[in-house]
Simulated scan of single mutants.
Amino acid sequence: MARITIIETGRVPKTYRERHGSFPDMFERMIRTEDSSAAFEIVSIPNGDALPDPRKLEAVLITGAAAGVYDGLDWIGPLEDFVRTAYVNKTPMVGICFGHQLIAQALGGTVRQSEKGWGVGRHVYRVLPDNGVVDGEQLAIACSHQDQVIEAPNDALTILSSDFTPHAGLLYANGTTLSVQPHPEFDLDFAHVCCELRDGKAPDAVVATARASLAEPLDSAKLGGAITRFLGRRAAP
């Protein structure tokens, strides 16, 4: 398994971090479920860590964040440059939620706050047949977002979609870049935390429906396994 560099772009609220861990902690648990030999290094943007040279990394995973990719924060431009360099170099790279949106924006897509509002709870996504990464006809995964990829980059093939999130999973033409909007790293408890965090922000009916949806099973392990195997890919010579 490749050594995975996790780029932490946002923090779990302190109240919940002690019980549930950081976003990198969640990804480490997800990946080790599939591959117990996986090794990690964490680059934390909130802690002020400098971005490494992606050409020297074995694999990259970009986490979620509360920020919007269009917010103009001083670290977003350098992270977009990092993504473009990794893409050209064919460094295996995966983005989740904010990471999904950041990769899309860096590579020519359009991201904005969706007029559809909050996506929270268990959402079901159609899987593009024979995409080479994710098996099956559909996946149910926890999500928590308002922003979406509205227009996918020209280099991206949409492999996960729903009526609410038309570009929920993107596989890129370089063969080593993948991104998804929902959160396979979230366990059921933290998916409920996300509902709690939307109380008073999202409409009450949306939060109630999200909570109720989590009574149905999630396919987190299936998508997490696919992501883990993808990060272990090597670019063709």
Results as ranks from 00 to 15, higher is better:
118 W>N: 09
55 R>E: 12
142 A>S: 15
206 V>H: 08
156 A>M: 06
166 P>L: 11
94 V>L: 08
231 L>Y: 04
30 M>S: 13
75 W>C: 00
100 H>A: 06
179 S>I: 02
174 N>E: 05
20 H>S: 04
87 Y>N: 04
194 C>R: 14
202 A>H: 07
16 Y>Q: 08
223 L>A: 07
162 S>A: 10
54 P>S: 00
192 H>D: 07
29 R>A: 14
84 R>T: 10
72 G>W: 02
224 G>N: 09
150 I>T: 14
158 T>Y: 08
234 R>G: 13
120 V>E: 01
175 G>T: 07
130 D>P: 01
213 S>E: 09
150 I>P: 01
21 G>M: 03
136 G>Q: 11
64 G>N: 10
214 L>G: 09
43 V>E: 00
25 D>M: 09
187 D>K: 09
150 I>M: 14
21 G>F: 02
34 E>R: 14
151 E>A: 14
232 G>A: 13
104 A>R: 01
131 N>D: 08
184 P>L: 08
222 K>I: 14
205 A>I: 13
27 F>T: 02
159 I>G: 04
73 L>D: 11
112 R>C: 10
236 A>W: 05
28 E>P: 03
214 L>E: 12
100 H>C: 06
145 H>P: 08
216 E>D: 15
71 D>N: 06
102 L>N: 03
187 D>V: 08
164 F>N: 06
210 A>T: 07
42 I>L: 03
70 Y>V: 03
177 T>S: 13
118 W>K: 09
149 V>K: 03
95 G>P: 01
51 L>H: 00
148 Q>D: 10
